[in-house]
Write a protein that binds this DNA or RNA. Sequence first.
DNA 1: CCGGACATCCAAACCGCTTTGGATTTCGAT
DNA 2: ATCGAAATCCAAAGCGGTTTGGATGTCCGG
Lengths: 345, 345
Amino acid sequence: MSKGVNLKELSKKLNLSQTTVSRALNGYPEVSADTRKRVAEMAEALGYAPNSQARRLATGRSMAIGHVIPRSIHEMMNPIFLEFIAGAGETYSKHGYDMIISVVEDDHEEDAYRQIASRKKADGVIVHGPASDEHRHELLKELNLPFVVHGRIPGAEEETSWIDMNNRRAFERATNLLLDLGHTRIALLNGLEQMDFAKRRRRGFESALEARGHVADPDLMRSSDMTEPFGCENAMEMLKSDNPPTAFLVSSMITAIGVARAVGQCGLQTGKDVSIITHDDALSFLPNSGEIPIFTCTRSSVRFAGQKAAELLLNMIANPGGKPTSLHLDAELIVGQSTGPAPSR
Amino acid sequence: MSKGVNLKELSKKLNLSQTTVSRALNGYPEVSADTRKRVAEMAEALGYAPNSQARRLATGRSMAIGHVIPRSIHEMMNPIFLEFIAGAGETYSKHGYDMIISVVEDDHEEDAYRQIASRKKADGVIVHGPASDEHRHELLKELNLPFVVHGRIPGAEEETSWIDMNNRRAFERATNLLLDLGHTRIALLNGLEQMDFAKRRRRGFESALEARGHVADPDLMRSSDMTEPFGCENAMEMLKSDNPPTAFLVSSMITAIGVARAVGQCGLQTGKDVSIITHDDALSFLPNSGEIPIFTCTRSSVRFAGQKAAELLLNMIANPGGKPTSLHLDAELIVGQSTGPAPSR
DNA sequence: CCGGACATCCAAACCGCTTTGGATTTCGAT
DNA sequence: ATCGAAATCCAAAGCGGTTTGGATGTCCGG
C-alpha cells in the first residue's frame, strides 16, 4: 500500500534496532516471540519489503540464476526453450530466486558468462543445448560459476551436473516398434547433429536397425533445424523417390507436422500408408495427448526437465562443494494414430 | 581472467582514490586523459568489473526490466511470448539492462508486481497479453512503475504506452481478400476472446463482412487457445456440416496448420477447395516465407514488436515524466498458396 | 607578484541491508 | 547472595560501488 519504507524507518517506528528488526523478519532465533510478532505486524502495516539490491550486496548472493541464450539457440530451439524456461521459472520463484535471461549475439556468449561471474549477476547458470563439441563447461569451471547442463556434455558426464532424457534409448525403442510393425525403410529426420542430443538419437536409431540386421540408409537421414518446412520438404522428396520410406522417425512435433502435411499432399494416409513416430516434448501449445494421441511418440516433458534442472542447481548452490549430481529421465513410448503395420506391396 | 578485484583494490594499485577511478571508468569529465587511460588499462589487466548489486544500490536504479508471466499466459501464448521476449532481450542487452522473468501462479500476479516495485527489482515492466477487462495498468500506476503494454488496454489507450499491431484492420483486409475471391461462407478461428487482440480481430472480420452486406455466422466463429488440435477439430466439424465454409480466417499459424490437416483429412485441397488465411507472427521455427509462402497471411513480426517495446520502455525510464508514447505496427497482407477463388458448386 | 578560473584529484558520506561482537537483563542453580 | 548460562537486544562495521563538497595545483591576465 504505502511505499518507500526502509529498515531504518521501520526500526525507528518500532523503537528497535535495525539488527533486531532484520533478525525478526528473517527468522533468527535470538528474538522473542512477542517482538517478532510486533515487528511482523508493523512491517505488514507499513508495507515494508527489503531492497533486494541492498540485501544482495550484504549477503553476497545475488539470488538469481542466469540463462544465456545466443540467437542461434533460440532460433532453433525456440518453443522447447521457453517451455524449459517456464519450468525452471516455477522452481525459482518457489525458492525466492530471480531468473535473468541474456539474449546475446552468438559470438558474445563467453562474454556474457564472464560478466555474470565478474559482476556477480547470478549465483549460477543453466547451460542450454550442449553441442558435441562443447566448451562452456570449462569456462564456467574456470569462472567458478555453478551450473547445470540441460542435456549432456560428451566426455564430461562425470564431472558436470546435468539433466537429460535418454535420447538413444528412446529412439532405439521407437525404431524397434517400427521394425516390429514390419517397416524396414525408415527415414530419420533429426535435429542438427552438431547438437549432442541429435547425435544420441541417431545412434539409437542406427543401433536398433543394426541389431536386426538392417543398415541405415544415408539417403533417408536428414538433419536440420526442426522446423515445419524441414519436415514437409524432406518427406516430400523422399516419398517421391524410387524407393520411398514407409515410416519416419522425427525429432520434433513441429517437424512431424510437416511430414504429415507432405504425406497428405502425396495423397497418402498417415498411420496407414506411412507411419510416423516423433519425439514429443509435451509442449503446451502442441498437445498430443488424449486417449489416442495423433502422433505415436516418445514423450518427455521438457517443462518437467526445467523444474528439475533448477532444483539441481539450487541444491548445488545451497550445498557447495558437493559432488555433481545428474538426472536421467526416461521418455515414454506412446502409441497413437500415426503408426500402423507396414503396407504390403 | 583474474577475479575478485574490486574498486578499492584497483584504486590502491593505481595510487588513486576510488572516486577518480570510478569517474574515469564511467566517463566523467573531471579526469585527465592520461589518468583515464591508465585506469582503463589497469582495469582491463586486472579484469575489474563493477559489482552490479553495489552499483545498483548506489545509483538506485536496478538496470533491469521485469516480465511477469502467469502460467495461463505462457500456456496460451507460449511461442509468441518467447519470440517477443527474444526481441526485447536484444534491446536490453544492447543498453546494459537485464531481463528478469517471473513465472507466477495466476493468482499471484499482483503480488509479483508489488514485489518488483517494493523491493526495487526492476525499473520497469512489460505488460503482456492485455485482456478486455484489464486492470494491471491501474496497479502499476499506483506502484509508480513504468510500463509498456504489448497490445492495447481498451479505454486506456491515451494514458498508457503501448505497442500493437493493427489487428482490426489486418483482419478486415484479410476478410476482404477472401470476399474478393468469391468466398462468402468464411469461418473465423480466433484466439481467446477475453483477450483484447482477439476481440479486435473479430471486429475487423465482422465489419468487413457487414460492409459487403454479409453477416457473420455464429456457427462459423470459434474462439480458444490457439493450439493445433483446436484448428483441426473445429475445421473438421465445420467442413463436415451441411453448409460448410469455403474459407477460414485463423488467428495463428499453429492453428492454421491444424486447419490444413483437417482439410487434408477430408480429402480436400488447401488453396483450391478450401482457402485459409492466417495471422503469421513470423515465428522463427514456423517459417512461412519464400517466394510463395505456404499460407496466405497477415504478417507482423512479434520479435520486432519486442525490440520496439523495450526501446519504448527504456526511453520512458531515461526520460521520466514524459507523455505516454505508442507504436502502431501495420501487418502486411501476403498472398501465399493457401488461398484461391471460391469453388463454384 | 597576486587572485581567480580551471583542471585534477580525494576523503567521506551514503545507498539499505546483514552480521559480528558485545552489552544488558533474567533466572535457575548452587 | 552469587554465578554462569540463556535470552534479548544493540552499535557499528562491513558489502562495493557512486556522489558530494572540498582541497590542491596550475596557469594566466593584470
